[in-house]
Design a protein around this nucleic acid. Structure first.
Lengths: 222, 222
DNA sequence: AGGCTAGTGACAGTCACTGACAATTGACAA
DNA sequence: TTGTCAATTGTCAGTGACTGTCACTAGCCT
């Protein structure tokens, strides 16, 4: 395993340009709004041609999700490496939590965490970005459903449970994210707390008897 | 209540133009692809100026969802009018089914049903449209969650169950839609069948004892 | 050193979308 | 019936995202 076999000057330069573009883009997006920021402004801040921007990113939108992508793939990996004795929802919950602790440095290498947090809110409050976010979210859920199915030795296409479990999980996560964005404490800790409390409210409810217990968080209500 | 107090020539003309634009747009989108269809092609087919198109629709995307919007608002109304004795998920299930029977004519007044079905597939297979679809879907779910909460006399913000139930329902619907699009029978009946069978598989599973019954469709699997 | 090639910039062009203003046309009253 | 008002529409010009092309620069490799 050679994770860093001397990147070479060219590679280093590319990455520096790319990171600079991401930083500039997020900084501008969060400070003056996504729509009100032009690609020209971004490339001017980094001093490269517009054409170069579009060689690094498929579009303006793509730049906004650059950091999210890191976090997401990191999360999938975290789920994959959860011990087999955990139930699916436990594994997912623990993976999110662990992710918050370990992803920090990787993000900070590109942009300040604080900027990443502001970007998160930006996405939630910008229709075009929210749409794109939900779409990639669905792709992520499909991927995770497959990981879960494999863990449990199930066939994703035959047994709907992995997908349902992941959809439920995703729904709760999204709800927590929305509430965090609507609140007034925009710290990482606050998001962590909120996520944890929501997950801890739902998971035990699913493990309990859903039929006789009416106070849990069960959808068979009347 | 006067639902049709003589629309007036002006109104009739507006509606005719709008419908023609929708028809032309969907026809072109489904036959040559959404991205590969320009607004100029659409307006040329109807023989109006491009500016007029953008006065009727917020964007190219907006035209693609014109019929969906009808169907959705019709569905919300259907849910609202379900008898109170049905459980939330029963009400949702029955509303979808009833919707398939009654929405037909309203759609046919604008575009052929068959075109609407092809549009559905188009949305599922076009990333930009899918993103927009998921976004508006989320909005719809929020609206329905409120309707359900009201039916059951609950507070949406205090009790998560309405939202969870609706999210679950939405997830199943989306899954059915995806499978239909991936299959080879593109008829309305096929989608109806698929939707029904999926719903009928999940709803009883939720009503049963989720803890002891391991074959249902329950997310607390191991 | 010198050739190879990836990465870049400059330029022109397409397409979605918008603001402004003028021309048209249905609505309605005198 | 006719004249006025207001809604609809067309024309024109402009912005901004995004793409293809081509020449050029700069790491890389022998």
């Amino acid at each position: 395993m050679d994770t860093a076999p001397r990147p070479g000057l060219r590679e280093r330069k590319k990455r520096r340009t790319r990171d600079a573009l991401v930083r500039a883009a997020l900084e501008l997006f969060t400070s003056q709004g996504y729509e009100r920021t032009t690609v020209d402004e971004i490339v001017e801040a980094v001093d490269v041609s517009q054409r170069t921007f579009f060689r690094y990113f498929a579009g303006k939108e793509d730049a906004a999700f650059a950091v999210q992508r890191m976090s997401e793939s990191h999360f999938v990996e975290a789920v994959r490496q959860r011990p087999a004795h955990e139930t699916p929802l436990e594994a997912l919950r623990n993976a999110v939590m662990a992710n918050w602790d370990t992803i920090g440095e990787a993000i900070e290498a590109v942009v300040p965490i604080e900027l990443h947090m502001r970007t998160f809110q930006l996405i939630e409050s910008t229709p075009v970005l929210l749409a794109a976010h939900l779409c990639r979210q669905e792709g992520l859920e499909e991927e995770i459903a497959r990981v879960i199915a494999e863990r449990e030795g199930l066939d994703v296409d035959a047994d709907p449970r992995p997908r349902v479990a992941v959809a439920l999980f995703g729904g709760v996560m999204r709800l927590a994210g929305r509430l965090w964005g609507a609140g007034d404490d925009f710290s990482v800790a606050a998001l962590r707390e909120l996520t944890a409390s929501h997950l801890d409210q739902v998971i035990p409810a699913l493990a309990r008897d859903w039929r006789t217990d009416r106070s849990g968080g069960v959808p068979d209500t009347r």
